[in-house]
Computed example of a mutant assay.
Amino acid sequence: MTILLTGSTSGIGWETLKSLYDQADQWILPLRNIRKAEDLFRELPDQDRLKIYEMDLSSIQQTHKIAQEIKSNHPSIDILINNAGGMFPGGKKTSEGFDMTFAVNHLGPFALTKQLLPCLSRGKSKVIYVSSEAHRIPGLDLNDLLLENYSSTITAYGAVKLFNILTAKYLSEQGYHTYALHPGAVKTAFGAETDPISKAIIRATQLFFISPRKGAETTIHLAKNPTKNLESGAYYVRKKVKKPSQLARSKSLSSKLWNQSEEALKKLGL
């Protein structure tokens, strides 16, 4: 089995990798910090099964390039886990001009997944998105799905977590086994790069957060269980299906998001 996991060097991603490690013959690990990864992965046995790629989801062009390399080297992928994400100051832009929260949580994973679709078998492979109950945060501007005019950190984060569910929904309708999930409020370094107010809110509530190991449980559940025991296109909380927001159930919005995301890639020449 071949598993691709983003965000594997901290928090939920690291716990997911450790828990599922023996399930795969090959691990594909796109990540930002190669040195950190090499130090961390020393505790894993049989490191020959690890294939590490340096990739920054905030750079869509780089993500596209690395995805092409992965596709060339790994023609068959059994499970793709879009785990990496983050919360950034409202209005912060990438070098390509996208909202940082939008790029890291949606457009980067979108570019990666779209490029790897030929490696994923309809009816067999799984695509898993780590979303959040934050997708219920109101304030999405349906006329600004690329988040070009967002200044609120919280509203932007809620929007991209909604986009995770909508993307899973769209792919499910194309015949892929896809799942989105809420990991819970997890005590990690999440939010370290956001604005001071949001950072203070996160720190003030962390006493009530669960461990990264606990937060990884639903991802592990979806990766391990046969597709016949799971509901494709569904949103999972605590390893069970839960109805997401009304917007997250919109077929027309999922199609609109997919089309506008494709247009964003085309404008970059991808």
Results as ranks from 00 to 15, higher is better:
7 G>Q: 07
7 G>V: 01
8 S>M: 07
11 G>C: 08
18 K>C: 06
21 Y>W: 12
24 A>Q: 11
24 A>K: 04
25 D>Q: 15
27 W>D: 02
35 R>W: 05
37 A>T: 00
44 L>K: 08
47 Q>D: 11
48 D>L: 10
52 I>W: 15
55 M>P: 02
57 L>C: 06
58 S>D: 14
60 I>G: 05
62 Q>D: 07
62 Q>S: 09
63 T>I: 12
66 I>P: 02
68 Q>D: 15
69 E>L: 10
72 S>Q: 13
73 N>M: 07
78 D>A: 11
79 I>Q: 06
79 I>K: 13
80 L>R: 01
85 G>E: 06
88 F>C: 00
89 P>A: 10
96 E>D: 15
98 F>Y: 10
105 N>C: 12
107 L>K: 10
108 G>N: 12
110 F>S: 03
111 A>N: 01
112 L>I: 05
115 Q>K: 15
117 L>V: 10
119 C>P: 03
120 L>V: 00
123 G>L: 12
123 G>T: 08
127 V>W: 00
131 S>D: 02
134 A>F: 08
136 R>C: 08
145 L>P: 06
147 L>Q: 12
148 E>P: 05
148 E>S: 14
149 N>K: 15
153 T>I: 09
155 T>Q: 10
157 Y>C: 13
159 A>N: 07
160 V>N: 05
163 F>D: 01
165 I>Y: 12
166 L>W: 09
180 A>R: 11
182 H>L: 10
184 G>D: 04
186 V>A: 09
188 T>K: 04
192 A>H: 13
196 P>V: 05
199 K>C: 05
199 K>L: 07
199 K>E: 13
208 F>A: 11
213 R>H: 11
215 G>W: 08
216 A>N: 07
218 T>H: 14
218 T>K: 13
220 I>R: 03
221 H>S: 06
222 L>D: 00
224 K>M: 08
224 K>E: 13
225 N>C: 01
225 N>G: 04
235 Y>S: 12
240 K>V: 08
242 K>V: 04
244 P>F: 04
248 A>D: 00
249 R>Y: 06
249 R>P: 00
250 S>H: 01
253 L>I: 02
253 L>E: 04
255 S>G: 08
256 K>C: 14
263 E>H: 14
264 A>W: 05
265 L>K: 02
266 K>G: 06
